[in-house]
Design a protein around this nucleic acid. Structure first.
Length: 572
DNA sequence: GCCGTTTTCGGCCCGACTGTTTTCAGTCG
């Protein structure tokens, strides 16, 4: 699939053109970039079958952009893009991911201070060179400092959603290699952390040499850091590292435990071993020289008088004690989920029709799917107004007639905007007609804590609001959560029987693990939604489930584990 | 650069917010 590579280049071209204050062209490039992201077929294949003529049928693609696409397909490069880069050698991808910086400001920074990347930006901020610039000021400089801090903190880690598909690809190839006996993804990826530093594989094999030779020559590997008989590291073309470790079969369990981490969890388990006069390391659990466990994880924990701890819990956040007392939670699993309550359709400029989304949901074995398109305040998402919602209702009713025999139902929701004052952008009379309504904050994200808390609580008081979407508003690697008094939110959620969402979108994963656990402890129900804008994104559920498990959530805590009947009753 | 039931030129998504200005540009969603 070259679509996403080209799309990324077009977004960047657009940004370069915006920098140069070229009118309207940026819009054209952004538009095609988005069209490519949403395209079902690979442009390479389209070109093969129908040539430039077919390429030009992609909406927004005319002669010039069409030729750019063809050039990329044939040469892997776009000359126009290379020229723009040469003209303004700034790291746009990096600088635009600093919040508050767009093409215009980046241009000023480049022209006046020769700033080309975040490092140079940071230096300039610290020397107070930004504030005196025309159009900037003290406050902007302050905000930039904060944004840089955040940028640096998030840097170097990759989103779970980006890395997991790639890691799974390598995993499959390793698993199928005939000299490999066993292979497992370990490290933070096995613990399903929302961001990952690098990928770790654990392998057992009697032929480490053959395995290592196979590993370092796998396609997509750019550089080999180190190649030994038990341990190797490589950098892959996507820009992150993969480590592989080979152990003997009899140590597989202890190695699994050791390399899964987290470090704090391991230290705690080692202490328990020590208290029993045992020694625990990656090779096994030992009494003196005698190995008493280590072949598999279950028996290893058992030898420590512990119950096996699910990887998602291994953070030394109470799981050790719970395991010793046999009080570990029965964590939610993907198969417990009966439906998705937050997804979008083509009514919202999404990729797929309500029918297509529903068919995908049926394929996944769901008994319901809630279509919850944005409402009118969000112009960019083609937000629906009261009238459009009622038209959509008619379509959904019609579709539901079809599904009757299949024990499947489409529910109509809406993702309503919480305005600055806590009021909603849709009239109650329209909300009343929906099966349920979701409310979310999409504007004025930088309010003071008290105001933001009040604002959201006011929305929760509306009797038609059943769910708060992405309750803390964080965007991974980009934006901190809004200032919130989460305890007040919890109390309000309980009082007004509002469900808090675990949004599975890889950039959100909001609520995070800590808040999920607070909800559970406080008795506030949650829902695991994907926020899918196209049918494939219904698969994001996996990430939300991982997050929920990290937050100790059980089936009973999650509302979309309930049957259609139970759910509709709950909403009523 | 693209597009067309206002069709080969003239318009292109837009409202809110912030911080900068003194009426508005840049950014965000």
């Amino acid at each position: 699939m070259q679509n996403l590579n080209i799309s990324k280049i077009f977004h960047e071209i657009a940004e370069y053109l915006e920098m140069e204050e070229v009118a309207f062209k940026p819009y054209a490039y952004h538009r095609v970039a988005v069209a490519l992201e949403n395209l079902k077929d690979d442009v390479g294949e389209i070109y093969e079958k129908g040539g430039l003529k077919k390429i030009k049928e992609i909406p927004g693609v005319g002669k010039a952009i069409g030729l750019n696409i063809v050039e990329y397909i044939e040469t892997g490069k776009i000359d126009y893009y290379e020229k723009l880069k040469k003209k303004s050698p700034v790291n746009l991808g990096e600088l635009t991911s600093v919040e508050g910086l767009g093409p215009k400001r980046i241009k000023v920074l480049y022209k006046k201070l020769d700033i080309k990347n975040v490092k140079e930006l940071e230096r300039a901020v610290k020397l107070h060179k930004i504030a005196p610039l025309f159009g900037f000021g003290e406050k902007t400089e302050e905000n930039l400092l904060e944004a840089i801090k955040f940028f640096k903190k998030a840097k170097g880690r990759i989103l779970l959603g980006e890395i997991l598909p790639i890691a799974k690809d390598f995993y499959k190839k390793l698993k199928n290699f005939k000299w490999i006996n066993k292979v497992t993804i370990v490290g933070s990826l096995r613990r399903k952390k929302e961001t990952i530093g690098d990928v770790d594989f654990l392998v057992s094999s009697k032929y480490p040499k053959k395995v290592m030779e196979f590993f370092v020559s796998m396609p997509g590997i750019e550089k080999v850091w180190g190649k030994g008989l038990t341990k190797s590291s490589v950098r892959i073309k996507e820009g992150f590292d993969i480590d592989i470790r080979i152990v003997s079969q009899k140590s597989y369990g202890s190695a699994l435990q050791y390399f899964t981490g987290s470090k704090t969890h391991n230290i705690a388990t080692r202490k328990i071993a020590m208290s029993k006069g045992l020694k625990l390391n990656e090779y096994g659990l030992f009494r003196g020289d005698k190995m008493i466990a280590g072949k598999d994880e279950v028996s290893l924990y058992k030898a420590l008088k512990m119950k096996w701890v699910p990887p998602e819990l291994r953070e030394d956040q109470g799981e050790i004690e719970a395991s010793l007392k046999n009080k570990l939670p029965q964590l939610i699993e993907q198969k417990d989920i009966k439906g998705d309550l937050h997804c979008h359709s083509e009514w919202n400029g999404g990729k797929h029709s309500i029918l297509e989304m529903a068919e995908e949901a049926i394929k996944k074995g769901y008994s319901y799917l809630g279509i919850s398109d944005h409402t009118k305040f969000l112009k960019i998402e083609y937000g629906l107004d009261e009238k459009e919602l009622s038209l959509q209702r008619k379509e959904i009713n019609k579709l539901n007639l079809k599904f009757k025999s299949k024990k499947f139902k489409i529910l109509q929701g809406a993702e309503v905007n919480i305005l600055k004052n806590g009021l909603l952008d849709i009239k109650d009379i329209a909300l009343k007609e929906l099966d349920y309504a979701i409310a979310g904050v999409h504007s004025s994200l930088k309010m003071p804590k008290e105001k933001m808390t009040e604002r959201i609580i006011r929305a929760m008081k509306n009797p038609y609001i059943k769910i708060i979407a992405h309750p803390t508003g964080r965007v991974l690697k980009k934006r901190e959560r809004y200032q919130l008094d989460f305890n007040k939110i919890l109390r309000a959620a309980k009082e007004f029987k509002v469900i808090l969402e675990i949004n599975s979108s890889p950039v959100r994963l909001d609520l995070n693990d800590q808040y999920i656990r607070s909800c559970k402890d406080f008795g506030v129900k949650m829902v695991i939604n994907t926020d899918a804008h196209r049918k494939e994104q219904l698969n994001w559920l996996e990430f939300g489930i991982g997050q929920a498990r990290r937050g100790w959530a059980e089936k009973k805590d999650i509302i979309n584990t309930r049957s259609l009947l139970q759910l509709t009753k709950f909403f009523k």
